[in-house]
């Protein structure tokens, strides 16, 4: 194939520089620290609590984004209403906004003396400085991933397919379950994985609203920064490695589910 050598060369060089080298450095750091040191770092209550918090809330936020992001994409593609274009453009805002700005804005809104925080605390529900706040920030930064991956797929589904289902006597619900959902599944899962990955690594928007109380609202990326500030590079690398391992396992699982679903629902 013409151009294979050149394009492969560029690809591998870029991948090495941008992806492989940093990950290699992280692994190297871990190797220097030793398996025993890594385990001793991770096995502390504070670290375990932070890892559990980060991954649990990232997963919950990605689940919410999966459902709401698909609905949002559906509305943007299928319905025509005033302000649709503005709403469509607004979906990308979490991409463009500096995450710290988003975090401060959410905190200002949801703090007990904020506009929405004042309302929720009246019913005894505190959002800022609790896991709810972290979850909210993660939903905010992850939403565009699902919507933007699913939107073009919905755009390609011809309305006649739904009409055909109806003429064959199937209810709307049956069509949704057996025609629409299988067609959206691969793209929705990709969006879910992207949203999850982004949430796991998210730092800026979370630390303002989280309150960062050790054992309760302290996320794993923050713990890494704390270790770095104390020149404790080994421990920072160890937590980084633990996150890398868990993320890798989660993304691999999602990929396997995708392969399985593609085999089960066939050519999409």
């Amino acid at each position: 194939m013409p151009g294979l050598g050149l394009s492969a060369g560029i690809t591998f060089a870029m991948l090495t520089l941008v992806v492989a080298l940093p990950i290699g450095a992280l692994l190297w750091q871990g190797a220097e620290f030793g398996a025993f040191g890594i385990w001793a770092t991770i096995n502390r209550d504070r670290v375990r609590a932070a890892l559990w918090l980060s991954f649990r809330l990232s997963f919950l936020a990605a689940c919410f984004n999966l459902v709401f992001g698909v609905i949002l994409a559906w509305v943007l593609v299928r319905y025509r209403f005033p302000g649709r274009r503005i709403l469509d453009a607004a979906v990308d805002l979490p991409f463009a906004l500096p995450t710290a700005v988003a975090g401060i804005a959410l905190t200002a809104l949801y703090a007990p003396n904020g506009v929405l925080g004042g309302l929720t605390s009246q019913i005894g529900w505190q959002v800022a400085y609790t896991p709810w706040g972290i979850w909210l920030a993660l939903v905010f930064v992850g939403l565009p991933f699902v919507t933007r991956t699913v939107q073009p797929v919905i755009d390609e589904i011809e309305p006649e397919v739904e009409e055909a289902s109806a003429t064959l006597g199937a209810s709307r619900w049956h069509a949704l379950r057996h025609v629409i959902a299988p067609m959206l599944m691969p793209a929705a899962l990709t969006g879910f994985a992207l949203s999850l990955a982004r949430a796991v690594g998210e730092y800026g928007s979370v630390i303002f609203i989280a309150g960062n109380i050790p054992l309760r609202t302290e996320i794993a990326p923050l713990l890494i920064v704390i270790q770095l500030e104390e020149y404790n590079y080994g421990a920072a690398g160890a937590i980084g490695l633990a996150m890398l391992a868990i993320s890798f396992t989660m993304l691999l699982t999602i990929n396997l589910i995708q392969i399985w679903s593609r085999r089960r629902i066939g050519h999409v």
């Binding site: 006649e160 397919v161 009409e163 055909a164 025609v179 299988p182 629902i265 066939g266 999409v268």
Partner: peptide, 15 residues
């Protein structure tokens, strides 16, 4: 209605 309908684009379920 139980009307068998054939669409111009056929609208087969491709999955």
């Amino acid at each position: 209605r139980r009307a068998g309908f054939v669409f111009q684009s056929y609208a087969l379920f491709r999955h």
